[in-house]
Amino acid sequence: MTLPEQIEQKKNMSPGSPLSALKAGLAPGPACGGIQLASCLTLARGRVHEIMGDSADVFALMVAGVADGPVYWIGSWREIESLSPTGIEDFLDPSRFVLTCCLNRGETLWAAEQALRARSAACVIAQLQDGPDLRESRRLQIAAEEGGAVGLTLLRGRAGNSAAETRWQCMARPEGGWEWICTKHKRGMPGAWRVSWRGKHHAPDLVPLAATASA
């Protein structure tokens, strides 16, 4: 199908019909669904999302808690070792975790790609220092589209120019709860939310901060 044909078909199809989107080849197969974190926030499956900030762990754990299936946490030995399942159990069952310790950035990216490509993972969390570049993130993106898992890259340092679907800045608020700022969204609007959480059996409660915020 050539590009003009695709555009033509896009014009003809009824808006919001996932079936027609699938037929048109515009939406990748397993990526149709999303992980609904809250009533107003859905994170696309089969995509890679970038999380930054000092409480990026919490964001990742909330996403992993909602995703159903094994969770692969990939990172350096130091990062993996400091994770504590006794605290994680407030978010999800630690027996769902498979920890993968890598020695360097190359191994981490390779392991993340393998885990995303395999269909067993529901959520793949890769911890990196600096964000993946365009080529690295595109590879992760393709692997995620094949496997259908939601991929999260937790960045300690700077984010690069990447192919990530969304990018989040997560901070803990001094008065309790967190602040999530979506600084990039390929198919939606960025926004900012104040988030609170009332335990394992509740969805996080999101309150938009700015008037422009929307999911």
Partner: peptide, 26 residues
């Protein structure tokens, strides 16, 4: 899904070493 998990653990373990793919136990 169980098969897929075993396959992935094998793939990761064969490159990184099987002692570096771990699970939690209380």
């Amino acid at each position: 899904r169980e098969d897929d998990r075993a396959d992935l653990v094998s793939t990761l373990g064969n490159r990184l070493g099987f002692d570096r793919v771990r699970v939690y136990a209380p």
